[in-house]
Measured scan of single mutants.
Amino acid sequence: MQIFVKTLTGKTITLEVEPSDTIENVKAKIQDKEGIPPDQQRLIFAGKQLEDGRTLSDYNIQKESTLHLVLR
């Protein structure tokens, strides 16, 4: 499924993921596309910060959901 990741600069990254993918996994995909190390990434969905060990389905993230990427 496709999800979108919006950065603070207003750029939107499109990722191909599975509901069973972990947040860690998603961060690795963002690193592949954008070169941002996962340890600098914070992903936010519905106002919650997403934890590395959880999966997209844990957070009920469905196709075409938009996550927000904050760098630390």
Rank of each mutant, 00 (worst) to 15 (best):
I3A: 01
I3M: 09
I3C: 01
F4I: 07
F4L: 12
F4E: 10
V5Q: 00
V5G: 01
K6S: 06
L8T: 11
T9G: 11
T9M: 07
T9Y: 04
T9A: 11
K11R: 12
T12E: 15
T12L: 07
T14A: 13
L15W: 01
L15Y: 04
E16V: 05
P19M: 05
S20A: 11
S20G: 15
T22R: 08
T22S: 03
T22N: 13
I23C: 02
I23G: 02
E24Q: 05
N25E: 12
N25Y: 13
N25W: 05
K29H: 04
I30C: 01
I30K: 00
I30G: 01
Q31Y: 12
K33I: 13
K33Y: 12
G35F: 07
P37N: 08
P38L: 13
P38S: 10
P38C: 02
P38W: 15
D39I: 05
Q41I: 05
Q41E: 04
Q41T: 10
Q41S: 09
R42C: 03
L43N: 00
L43Q: 00
L43D: 00
I44R: 05
I44G: 11
I44Y: 13
A46T: 04
A46P: 02
A46E: 14
G47D: 15
G47H: 10
G47T: 10
K48V: 14
K48E: 12
L50I: 06
L50T: 04
L50S: 01
E51I: 14
E51W: 02
D52G: 05
D52M: 13
D52N: 05
G53V: 08
T55G: 06
L56E: 00
L56G: 00
L56V: 09
S57F: 10
S57A: 15
D58I: 13
Y59M: 08
Y59G: 01
Y59L: 05
Y59F: 10
I61N: 00
I61G: 01
Q62Y: 11
Q62L: 11
K63D: 14
E64P: 03
E64S: 04
L67V: 14
L67W: 02
L67C: 01
H68T: 11
H68M: 08
L69T: 03
L69M: 12
V70G: 09
V70H: 15
L71R: 07
L71V: 04
